[in-house]
Simulated scan of single mutants.
Amino acid sequence: MKQVVLFDLDGTLTDSSKGIMASITYMLKELGLEIPADDVLRSFIGPPLSLSLGNLYGMDKEAAQKATLIYRDYYAEQGIHELEVYPGIAETLADLSKDYTLGLATSKPAPYAEQIIGNLGFADYFTGVFGADMDGRREGKATIIKDALTHLTDDLSQVVMVGDREFDIKGAKENGIASIGVLYGFGDLEELQSAGADRIVENAGDIPAAVRELL
């Protein structure tokens, strides 16, 4: 059985800030809520949308689910296409896929993640795409990583998670696997260090060497 590398999507493979922030702005306008500054909007990228809505607007689960449906009205039509692949990602995936089993573990709903990976021409690199479900029953990075591990391997010593936010690193730790934090995404050095990343890299091109150091 090959060793496994799990990748986050937003902030790790793609800069999806434009589409996500536009979708959030649309949602907040439709709900008549105040539009926060861009740095606050960017904080929505990574964690489950319901978590951010609860923290910033005090929404309960039912209200957050209704807001999420409005968000998806825009995202499914426009936001999903408003992204860019980070430099070096295509080469990194091509390199690692030769020797490792690659999986995608994202807090984004799995159908959206599958569509994005397909649109980018990356589908052949990944053995599995694991994400939240559309009704919110399965969300949170630790839960999604656990789902990926269930399908891909039973040897936790042979798995590493690559992501840009504390949620990726903490989710890896909760599942007993190693982690690599990337600095080009939406997190920063302090966040990744505090979360306990085993390795931290500056560029996508540095990921393969970090993977080979850990596995």
Score class of each variant (00 low, 15 high):
2 K>S: 10
2 K>W: 00
3 Q>G: 07
4 V>N: 05
5 V>C: 04
6 L>V: 00
7 F>A: 03
7 F>Y: 10
8 D>W: 04
9 L>N: 06
9 L>H: 03
11 G>H: 08
11 G>E: 10
13 L>G: 00
18 K>D: 10
19 G>L: 06
19 G>E: 07
20 I>G: 09
22 A>M: 03
23 S>L: 06
23 S>R: 08
24 I>A: 09
25 T>A: 10
26 Y>V: 01
27 M>L: 11
28 L>N: 09
32 G>Q: 11
36 P>E: 07
38 D>T: 10
39 D>Y: 12
41 L>Y: 06
42 R>S: 04
43 S>M: 10
44 F>L: 05
45 I>L: 03
46 G>Q: 07
48 P>Q: 13
49 L>F: 07
50 S>N: 12
51 L>S: 11
52 S>K: 14
54 G>W: 05
54 G>Q: 14
58 G>I: 04
58 G>V: 04
58 G>P: 10
59 M>P: 10
59 M>C: 03
60 D>P: 05
63 A>D: 12
64 A>F: 08
65 Q>I: 04
66 K>D: 14
69 L>F: 00
70 I>Q: 12
72 R>M: 06
73 D>F: 07
73 D>I: 02
74 Y>T: 06
78 Q>Y: 13
83 L>Q: 09
84 E>D: 12
90 A>S: 15
90 A>K: 15
90 A>R: 15
96 L>Q: 10
96 L>Y: 06
97 S>M: 04
97 S>D: 13
100 Y>Q: 09
100 Y>S: 06
105 A>V: 12
105 A>C: 14
109 P>D: 03
110 A>V: 12
111 P>D: 04
112 Y>H: 09
114 E>N: 01
114 E>M: 09
116 I>Y: 13
117 I>P: 02
120 L>D: 13
121 G>D: 14
122 F>E: 10
125 Y>H: 15
127 T>Q: 15
127 T>E: 15
129 V>Y: 03
130 F>E: 07
133 D>K: 02
134 M>C: 01
137 R>S: 14
139 E>I: 05
139 E>H: 12
139 E>K: 12
140 G>P: 14
143 T>K: 14
146 K>A: 15
146 K>N: 08
149 L>G: 04
150 T>P: 03
151 H>G: 14
152 L>S: 02
154 D>H: 12
155 D>A: 03
155 D>T: 02
156 L>E: 08
157 S>W: 05
161 M>D: 02
163 G>C: 09
163 G>D: 09
166 E>G: 14
167 F>N: 13
167 F>I: 11
170 K>F: 00
170 K>V: 15
171 G>M: 08
172 A>W: 05
172 A>K: 04
174 E>L: 13
175 N>A: 01
175 N>F: 01
176 G>R: 09
176 G>T: 05
179 S>W: 02
179 S>D: 03
181 G>Q: 10
181 G>S: 06
184 Y>V: 02
186 F>I: 07
191 E>P: 08
195 A>L: 11
196 G>M: 08
198 D>P: 00
198 D>R: 02
199 R>C: 02
199 R>E: 13
201 V>Y: 04
202 E>C: 00
203 N>Q: 09
207 I>Q: 13
207 I>P: 07
208 P>V: 01
209 A>C: 00
211 V>R: 14
211 V>D: 10
212 R>Y: 01
214 L>N: 07
